[in-house]
Design a protein around this nucleic acid. Structure first.
Length: 571
DNA sequence: GCCGTTTTCGGCCCGACTGTTTTCAGTCG
């Protein structure tokens, strides 16, 4: 079983224990284990083999045993017995906003409702409202939750959410005197998908800013509106929560609403031991009841004796311990990136000329790009054969003579065939500045074959970079079946660079892969896979995901100047 | 069920909102 399957079992256990009315601390322990496992950069099976399961925060004696049982047998007796105590389907009720464990249990025992469909029926015929301590409003609230669950976009990719949030922030800046306007929540932590957009700001006149927010042209519906906060649904069907506080309390507010939940819980547990109590309003000294306010997050963390923790690190792993020891890494910044190593042109399936791509890249402050059009095997993308490759190289040479302070590297995105061989002969690859290799076909191969295929490509001395290593497309296509640990080890062994593809529907490698690859000494690079000039700025998404993988500038090849990149590539 | 620079036992994050209530339980973030 893999990590997400095991996490799912423990999530179910936590839900079932809630229905059962077990100790909230026990439930919280399982939930903590789930979150911990979800963010784990290594498979549990491997940790167990190394005898290191107990090093994972939230995994103790009991959960360690359960993981072992799941890994050995694929089943868990405790889980099966627990499930047998409840009607099938009851857990699904917990997915409905407004329905918690108490309500779910009553719906099941008193009304025999054990599915979303039965719940809807029971609301519509009035049975839910007739329950003791329930009423029309509660029933209606649940119905609304049920409908929003169906109609609302679930989690949307950050590539969609961030521009929408920026549009709203720009409108708000134009119309009001709001200050410190910034995203919070998962958007600020740069998770690859976002549930709701959270915005924070400060103002002298909070009410005026809130009012302007609810009257923005993007607004379709106002869900709630008060003196300091409001929630709206945009015309894109996205919920946006906005909160405004006085300037001097902004630090603690932003910290609180950035989360993650587990990070905040860990932070507060630690604060209690220091005799402090944390909230969005500030830090209270328990002994005196004195509330201290913080205008910045730096000051807030500083008061707790901690180094500042970048939002992308705040997932409740070991970031607080590192901040205590003043050993938080300095994550890569967009300004560190000196060039783009994965760019297409109209020589294959790109839209724009090489010159236009180069000029656009230079305008972004880059010193170089690598033109990596597709190879001939990708007929659908007008892949290049040997003859056209030579023509393209001549054009690049001419352009390089006229471009000042900028260099176009010659390259190719060569197709990795189903058997791991490459689509172009070694002699042709040898003449390139940069060889990027990628899988584009036969993506359904079984894990062992796919892993061997990519490892074989990495063993080719001319292959510098593996592009979008897992092949996933967010919300469209799952990652190919592949043994990532084996890929990382082969990359480290052969000196092959793994790409962090910045295209917002790819973000591949993903955060936990970047984390693990780094640990194993794998070189990384950033590439946008741009097929038009307006794709070049997608670099910021790649940088954001790299930061979530705790990557520093030194881990990423194209923070070097062009000569440095060429010197570091293996061929 | 986890965990420890107070503890191997006795703690365990904090506040807001809502609805159905006469003081609070349930849910959410």
């Amino acid at each position: 079983m893999n990590n997400s399957e095991i996490a799912k079992v423990f999530q179910d256990i936590a839900d079932l224990l809630e229905l059962k009315g077990e100790s909230v601390f026990k439930i919280r322990a399982y939930q903590k284990a789930v979150r911990s496992i979800e963010h784990l950069p290594v498979e549990l099976a491997q940790l167990r083999a190394e005898g290191r399961l107990r090093e994972v925060p939230g995994i103790g004696e009991a959960i360690e045993k359960k993981i072992a049982e799941l890994l050995d047998t694929g089943r868990l007796k405790y889980y099966e017995e627990l499930r047998a105590e409840f009607p099938e389907g009851i857990i699904s009720l917990l997915q409905v906003p407004g329905v918690g464990p108490k309500t779910a249990m009553r719906l099941s025992t008193e009304l025999g409702v054990n599915s979303i469909e039965e719940l809807e029926k029971a609301i519509l015929d009035g049975r839910v409202a007739s329950l003791f301590r329930m009423g029309d409003k509660t029933a209606e609230n649940i119905l609304r939750g049920l409908q929003s669950m169906r109609t609302k976009e679930q989690r949307i990719p950050i590539g969609t959410a961030l521009p929408l949030a920026e549009g709203i922030m720009a409108s708000l800046q134009e119309r009001t005197a709001v200050r410190n306007l910034t995203p919070a929540g998962s958007l600020r932590r740069f998770r690859e998908t976002i549930g709701d957009i959270d915005l924070m700001g400060t103002a002298d006149d909070a009410e005026a800013v809130i009012r302007a927010f609810t009257e923005l042209p993007q607004v379709r519906e106002v869900l709630a509106k008060g003196g300091t906060k409001a929630s709206i649904v945009t015309k894109d069907n996205l919920q946006v929560d906005f909160r405004v506080v006085p300037h001097d309390a902004f630090g603690s507010l932003l910290q609180y609403f950035t989360g993650s939940k587990q990070h905040n819980i860990n932070l507060r547990e630690r604060a209690i031991r220091q005799g402090l109590s944390l909230s969005e309003y500030g830090i209270t000294v328990t002994r005196t009841g004195q509330l201290e306010k913080f205008a910045t997050e730096e000051a807030f963390y500083g008061r707790l004796g901690l180094q500042y923790i970048p939002p992308e690190f705040r997932e409740g792993t070991n970031e607080i311990e590192l901040a205590e020891a003043k050993q938080v890494p300095e994550p890569i910044d967009r300004r560190d990136v000196k060039g783009d190593l994965h760019v297409h042109s109209n020589w294959s399936d790109g839209r724009d000329s090489i010159e236009d791509m180069a000029l656009a890249a230079r305008a972004l402050g880059y010193r170089y790009i690598a033109i990596t059009d597709h190879s001939k095997g990708l007929g659908i993308a007008h892949g290049l054969n040997e003859a056209r490759i030579r023509e393209q190289r001549a054009e690049i040479r001419t352009l390089n003579e006229s471009l000042k302070d900028f260099r176009i590297l010659t390259g190719i995105e060569v197709d990795i065939r189903a058997d791991g061989s490459l689509d172009l002969p070694d002699e042709v690859l040898a003449e390139m500045d940069v060889v990027v290799a990628a899988v584009h076909s036969a993506m359904g191969q079984e894990q062992e074959k796919m892993t061997r295929r990519i490892v074989k490509a990495m063993e080719n001395p001319h292959v510098d970079i593996i592009a979008h290593p897992t092949g996933r497309l967010l919300g469209v296509r799952e990652a190919v079946a592949i043994d990532m640990e084996a890929i990382f080890r082969a990359a480290a062994r052969t000196g092959t660079v793994l790409e962090i593809n910045a295209m917002p529907d790819r973000l591949d490698l993903r955060d936990i892969h970047i984390f693990r690859a780094r640990e194993l000494g794998v070189k990384l690079c950033l590439g946008t896979d741009a097929h038009a000039t307006e794709h070049l700025p997608f670099m910021r998404f790649g940088v954001g995901i790299a930061r979530r993988g705790w990557a520093e500038a030194g881990h990423v090849l194209n923070t070097l100047p062009a000569e440095g990149v060429l010197a570091a590539l293996k061929h």
